[in-house]
Amino acid sequence: MANEIPLAREPRTPEAVATRNRILQAARELFAERGFDGTSIRMIANRAGVSDPAVHYYFPGKYDLFRALMVQPEYRVSPVARTLDEAVDVLAAMFDWWAENAALVRAMLQQQLRGDPASVAYLRDGEARYRGEVERILRSASYGGDIEAAADRLFHTLSGMLWDAVMTYGNTAGDVLRQPVFRERVRFFIRCAIGMEARCGA
């Protein structure tokens, strides 16, 4: 998949960085407002105040824009955890990042349920990466259970929570998931998925 698409170019000057960021911001807004199919490169260029070729220069296709928006900033999450409690913190922080991007997740879910092959490939890549990260985190925390099964439970439970939230709350899902009651739920789901909630006693 990734090999078929020319790589997005990196900006070299401060002006170029600012232009690229304006394009990304315009794309973020339009994907949330109009969905992925409903947004054209021209609309993005118009909103960012640049020419169509300028958008194409940095992002050859709409999916390059989407991928650039969904790049997880490395500094937000420590890739390892020394204890299972730390693992819960790291996994919850990873979910927070997805929740902040709920409007983009919603636009992508719409494509995925329409059967757009590129969006399905994007999900497969994302799932594989997520499972890899979870396995690394749990291994570093000396998790005693079946790591692969735990990653499977985490991926599906947290995806289900996020997908349900974007269908129930639309583009405000990100704000809703920031509320303490939902954050508590996420931590509870994570603890259950890695077997930290006691089976004995309600």
């Binding site: 349920l113 599906h156 439970t157 289900g160 929570m161 997908w163």
Partner: peptide
């Protein structure tokens, strides 16, 4: 928890 997990598995 049940609803989130089942939603996730079935939508996936």
């Amino acid at each position: 928890l049940f609803m989130a997990a089942v939603t996730g598995y079935l939508l996936r």
